[in-house]
């Protein structure tokens, strides 16, 4: 066994430690690209505000704690609800006007929205980041022998896996999910069957935004609460969505975790490439399979 590590030239702690970091990043990529895929499928809008809404999730948790004394566990539920509701207002007021127009309009509007939101939060709270402590139950860690596992990081991976699987089950196995899949294909006909499609669109946007906010709360104890936390992440998440295939739910989840791991591995074996490896993969996928690994050609 030890000869393998000698051959690879790296200690196991470093390898597994980086894999863990990769898995954490992958968890965030998966949750965010899942929301983006949902929104794109139903609204045909590339939601550039997704990173800003993720940031708002973290801020919502911070406000709940510092203004109302509401801790991490309730915030995990409340912050997605609050930010999701905010998203639904945005959809009703602005995005609604853009359906049927070119993707570019939605992209510009949500990009502008992201700039405004991030600008407002940076103006109010600076860009150095605010502390948010993990709940006491999740502090500390376990020595697994081959690596040290901080409890909170393990929790993030488990929580995001649960949320991703739950969302997938909701879409693939329930009646509401069947409406959603059908309305993604042919909204006019689904509405002609008596289903209120505009309300479903609003709810879908709310759900996608709530997923982003949930990820934001999970991220707060790891990365601290920072107005720019979303814009750092969102570019990579868009690469993940392109690789997985626009609009594919399962594809975005699997691709998110895989690319997180790939990034972690690259940090071990060739750290110089770790920031670019995802974009290299994206370029290759676009050349070979332009609709993405899990996307349907249309």
């Amino acid at each position: 066994m030890s000869s393998i590590w000698a051959f690879l030239g790296i200690p196991p702690q470093a390898l597994f430690g980086q894999l863990m970091v990769g898995l954490i990043n992958g968890a965030f990529y998966a949750m965010l690209s899942l929301g983006l895929a949902l929104i794109f499928g139903m609204l045909n809008i590339i939601n550039f505000a997704h990173g800003a809404l993720y940031m708002m999730g973290a801020f919502a948790a911070y406000f709940l704690l510092n203004f109302f004394g509401i801790g991490y566990w309730p915030a995990l539920l409340l912050a997605p609800l609050i930010v999701g509701a905010f998203g639904m207002v945005i959809e009703r007021l602005f995005l609604k006007q853009l359906y049927g127009l070119d993707h570019l309009y939605g992209l510009l509007l949500t990009f502008g929205l992201a700039l405004i939101l991030e600008g407002v939060f940076r103006e109010l709270y600076g860009s150095s980041g605010l502390p948010y402590a993990p709940p006491p139950e999740l502090t500390g860690g376990y020595n697994l022998g081959f690596m040290y596992l901080p409890t909170y990081r393990g929790w993030v991976v488990v929580a995001s896996a649960i949320v991703c699987i739950g969302t997938w089950l909701l879409i693939e196995k329930t009646r509401l999910g069947a409406y959603l899949r059908a309305a993604t294909e042919n909204p006019a006909l689904v509405q002609a069957f008596g289903i209120n499609v505009p309300a479903m669109i609003t709810l879908t946007y709310g759900l996608g935004v709530a997923l982003a906010a949930f990820a934001g709360v999970l991220a707060a104890p790891i990365y601290s609460v920072n107005p720019l936390m979303g814009s750092n992440l969102i570019i990579i998440v868009f690469a993940v969505v392109v690789i997985g295939g626009m609009g594919s739910i399962l594809g975005s989840v699997i691709t998110g975790f895989m690319l997180g791991l790939l990034e972690g591995l690259t940090k071990v074996f060739y750290p110089e490439a770790s920031n670019t490896v995802i974009f290299v993969v994206m370029a290759i996928v676009l050349l070979i399979k332009p609709q993405g690994l899990f996307g349907r050609a249309n």
Binding site: A182, T184, E185, L189, Q191, A192, F193
Partner: peptide, 24 residues
Amino acid sequence: LPSNAIARLGVAYCPEERGIFASL
């Protein structure tokens, strides 16, 4: 009325292109 409200009155529609959903 929007089409969902018309459907709720008891009108059902079978379109020319059939409208079978591929993802279902």
